[in-house]
């Protein structure tokens, strides 16, 4: 038994086999983080060594893991985070236009999550208070460069702007939950999260 075999993947859904004479066309998957903390992407990586299995079946398009900067035509798009600025809206639309299946991954994409806690405050109030009160700040003022995307006055979940095909709850959803949904989709099954895979914290 080699050193690596000690880390056997958890016994979840087996992947469809890619074998000789059985070449499957790789599905294209794009992922992005909007107003999220990257925790959902980290949880995606928590599929651990199953990532090496996954890349035999899928090809990554735009993703924080690749250097592809714009989403091309894809089979599956995965969105982490809600919408907090104009740039987020733009990227989300690019994903929706290019992806056959769009997945809202995690609390922020599903309902705004923690960033949406700013929604009960008006942007103007927040700004004015902080602009005058920030601890340790010398000569504070408001950055106004056109390179900075315009903030929205509230944080929105993504389904308010585009149609979303699947929602995976959790902050973040576990690596196992993400694996289950992806392997179901790859096998052409309707994704289902059973006991233990669905949670909201």
């Amino acid at each position: 038994m080699s050193e690596l075999d000690k880390f056997a993947p958890s016994p979840l859904t087996p992947l469809p086999q890619v074998g000789e004479g059985n070449e499957v066309k790789k599905l294209k998957v794009a992922t992005t983080s909007l107003a999220g903390c990257f925790g959902c992407h980290m949880s995606f990586l928590d599929i651990d060594e199953r990532l090496l299995e996954l890349v035999k079946l899928v090809e990554f398009d735009r993703s924080p893991l690749t250097d592809i900067k714009h989403c091309g035509p894809c089979d599956i798009g995965i969105i982490e985070g809600g919408l907090c600025n104009a740039e987020n809206v733009h990227v989300l639309r690019e994903f929706r236009a290019n992806c056959k299946i769009l997945i809202a991954l995690g609390a922020c994409a599903v309902n705004g999550g923690l960033p949406a806690q700013r929604n009960h405050l008006s942007l103007a109030t927040i700004l004015e208070e902080v602009y005058h009160a920030q601890h340790g700040l010398v000569d504070g003022f408001i950055p106004n460069d056109p390179e900075l995307p315009l903030p929205l006055d509230r944080v929105h979940p993504i389904h308010e702007v585009v149609k979303v095909d699947y929602f995976i709850p959790g902050c973040p959803p576990s690596g196992d939950a993400i694996w289950k949904v992806l392997t179901d989709l790859l096998a052409g099954r309707e994704p289902e999260l059973g006991h233990g895979l669905i949670h909201y914290d």
């Binding site: 104009a86 809206v89 927040i126 700004l127 460069d145 315009l150 702007v161």
Partner: peptide, 13 residues
């Protein structure tokens, strides 16, 4: 927090 450009944002969804 803040330090953001303050301009009108129109979201037409």
């Amino acid at each position: 927090l803040g330090k953001m450009p303050l301009e009108v944002e129109v979201l037409d969804a």
